[in-house]
Computed example of a mutant assay.
Amino acid sequence: MTSWMMTVSHLGLLEKHDDLGLPNLITLFRANLPALENRLGRAGALLALGTDLLDGKLARATHAETTFGKQADFLADTAFWTWYTVRHETSRRARALTLAAWAAPVAGITVASFLQGRLVEIPRSRWLRPSAAVEILIGARVIVRLFRSVR
């Protein structure tokens, strides 16, 4: 549902592109990973990490970067990691960091967009990326747990 709503409401951000393209499809797939939990289990988090790296590299390599992709990437991360930490994370601190890194900014951007009557771009700093730091932290915790369960 998140992926569908995001796609429909943001298609104008594809700019000069005629279709979504593979990088954006990978991003939208990531937003839908929670629906595959029964088939993927906790390995879905590893797939989320991998697709997050892949979509951006592919977009840059094929010169397929779009405003849609930048927005969709952040929203897909928000959808997946917020769901994942609420569902699987045992640490209250990790859950709070996730909400602060993703859910709060999305809520703020949504409110600002409605108030201004137009889509407000998500501000991105080249050097300060709290959501990326939290994604790495949660992802590392997932990897450690998977290795411990294999032993």
Rank of each mutant, 00 (worst) to 15 (best):
R93Y: 10
T78Q: 02
E89N: 00
L99I: 09
D73F: 13
T85D: 02
A107G: 14
K70M: 04
E65C: 15
A104P: 08
T82H: 06
A96G: 09
Q71R: 11
W83P: 01
F68N: 00
R93D: 11
A79W: 04
Y84I: 07
T62A: 09
G69F: 09
L97N: 07
S91H: 06
A107I: 14
D73S: 12
D77I: 07
L97C: 08
A107T: 12
A94H: 05
E65V: 15
A72Y: 10
Y84H: 06
T62I: 10
H63E: 09
A76E: 08
H88V: 03
E89C: 02
A64G: 11
T82D: 07
D77Q: 14
A96L: 14
F74C: 08
F74W: 00
P105H: 08
A103Y: 11
F68Q: 04
A94M: 10
A76W: 05
F68E: 00
R87C: 01
A61R: 14
V86G: 03
A61M: 12
R87M: 01
T62W: 12
A72F: 14
E89G: 03
R92N: 13
W81Y: 02
S91I: 05
D73M: 11
T66D: 09
L99Q: 12
T90E: 08
D77L: 12
W81C: 01
E89T: 01
A64S: 15
R92K: 14
T85E: 02
R87S: 02
E89R: 01
Y84D: 07
T98C: 04
A76D: 06
A79E: 09
A101K: 09
A76N: 07
L75H: 04
R87P: 02
R92W: 10
G69W: 08
R93A: 11
L75Q: 05
T90A: 12
R92L: 13
K70S: 04
G108K: 01
A101S: 11
T78S: 05
R87V: 00
T82L: 10
T66E: 10
A79K: 01
T78F: 00
T62L: 14
A103V: 07
T90I: 07
E65F: 13
A64K: 14
L75M: 06
K70V: 05
P105L: 07
G69P: 12
A101C: 07
A104T: 08
T67P: 06
V106M: 12
T67V: 13
A94K: 02
R95K: 06
